[in-house]
Design a protein around this nucleic acid. Structure first.
Lengths: 300, 300
DNA sequence: TAGTGGTCTAGACCACGTG
DNA sequence: ACGTGGTCTAGACCACTAT
């Protein structure tokens, strides 16, 4: 992979220029007047400038496409994250270590990690290291639960599982999950209760292939965020989600389960969640009672 | 100026800034002797390491407060943005220029701008420069209008101003705007229509001090996003906002203006908008009809 | 051709957290 | 004291845009 930036490939294009440059040896190129350096032999440094430089000694094949080195490093790190080489909550190798592993400078690794941190895939902690984020952490928990009580601190309520069964995906769900109608999915229905009040009615569909063995019992026994269970037991990490929000009237079922009158306004939240590689793995339709809670959102 | 990282000075007064720094001439401070020492004289360099580095030449005792150099540079740039030195849509000085103005390396300026770009205060365009963002740009427009039609592209509908008057701030609004009850505010009520359907009923309160001269006529004549008008005519730029969303039943007024039955579910969006320095300048309560539109939100 | 942001490297020091 | 991330510098080359 790598397909180094400069690598030959690049050459082809307009850039040609340097071309041979890479070879450090005897000054191919005179150009870099770098001369000044008396004492300190600047050394091989002037490799093809940034890009190619040392880069990975691995593979070669400069395929057609190519991206900045740090993007390639980022992709490599992401792959290790996905493959489970470094698990949620664990520390990943230090920047220095990764730099030497991938044969690039620490600065390049840093930039790759910066982006991963911005995407919340990892979190840096000064003096300690860089850690794979997990849905067990408090901070992360509320990224996916935006319901805040009018009074008091945000908290996780009790979950009552109504149902958990495997079935064939209806057309609409299949479309959202990018699978075929009729493919296996797991359907869950549950009610979340805050301070003794039924507040959320969720209907969830999960990719069948990723959640073999998920039962109502497991869900009921688990204390804590559902996504933490998915991450720990099924190796599926929710990375991001997209929601469509509307105000809808409560139908009979919802009214009964949430103890509100039929027709009462409820917040409808349709979510599609994605894992690594932007692959959708969950569709969720939540109905929220917003008389004592509100959905918090920041625009920036 | 700049209260350099280390510097003792800076500290307190923010004001002065420009002055010093800018002045290239006489070096206020002597220090920079650093003549490019011979090649790699590691030596001299080791000034206070990074922080002080070249920058200011003062260093010494890290007083109580101090932030990274790039944060200070960021604050200086933000101030220039706020003061209007560089107006929305305009290009700000190049990284090199800013680096020499503030007497820091280009890399430090770059990091400051990186953060400003992440906050959407400026936007970088390769090969062209860095520009002050504006509510006139399409991209920016929809950051603050999250209502998306079920079918078709997002668009700005027609705005019908019902009312625009000055009045004394009610307690609740005053609290949100961080002013005193009874202080002057401008209240606007309007209806947004998409494809011929009344979809949004907004009730808006603006800081009276910032919007002198705002009239219903001006609002009506203006075509385009309201925030673009505020930015162009009143020098007040909305930087970020925080929203609280609920589902509520339509009251008589809303029902009539939005052509829905009384009691119909509406999305209630309570927004507080902030300008530079995180100062609240607007409180807005919107009621959205979400039968053919939905509120789009991404969690990440 | 010139200027601007974008990428990359290399090395130094700082602040934090832990033994 | 040591290791890790955080900050800063300096210089080189690349890619894009406009002239």
């Amino acid at each position: 992979m790598s397909s180094l930036p400069t690598s030959l490939t690049g050459a082809a294009t307009p850039g040609a220029q340097e071309s041979g440059a890479a070879t450090p040896g005897a000054g191919t190129q005179p150009l870099s007047p770098p001369a000044p350096a008396p004492a300190a032999a600047p050394q091989a440094a002037p490799q093809t400038g940034a890009a190619s430089g040392s880069a990975p000694g691995l593979q070669s094949v400069p395929s057609p496409t190519f991206s900045p080195l740090y993007q390639q490093i980022k992709a490599l790190i992401t792959r290790s994250l996905q493959s489970g080489e470094w698990k949620p909550g664990e520390m990943i190798p230090s920047e220095m270590e990764l730099a030497s592993r991938y044969k690039v400078s620490q600065g390049t690794v840093r930039k790759a990690i910066d982006e991963l941190a911005a995407e919340n895939l990892v979190a840096r902690r000064q003096g300690k290291g860089t850690f794979v984020t997990t849905h067990h952490e408090d901070v992360v928990k509320f990224r996916f639960l935006r319901l805040v009580p009018d009074e008091g601190e945000p908290h996780y309520g009790a979950s009552r599982v109504l149902e958990c069964k495997r079935l064939r995906a209806p057309a609409e769900i299949a479309r959202l999950l990018d699978i075929r109608t009729g493919d296996s999915v797991v359907q869950i229905r549950r009610v979340l209760t805050f301070s003794g009040e039924s507040t959320v009615l969720d209907e969830i569909w999960l990719l069948g292939a990723n959640f073999k063995g998920l039962t109502a019992e497991k869900l009921t026994e688990w204390k804590g965020p559902m996504y933490a269970l998915f991450e720990a037991e099924f190796g599926t990490r929710m990375i991001r989600a997209s929601e469509k929000i509307r105000a809808v009237p409560a139908d009979e079922t919802a009214a009964e389960l949430l103890s509100v009158p039929v027709g009462a306004p409820l917040l409808s939240v349709e979510r599609v969640s994605y894992t690594y590689g932007d692959r959708p793995v969950e569709v969720r339709r939540g109905l929220y009672v917003t008389t004592r809670h509100y959905y918090q959102n920041d625009l920036s």
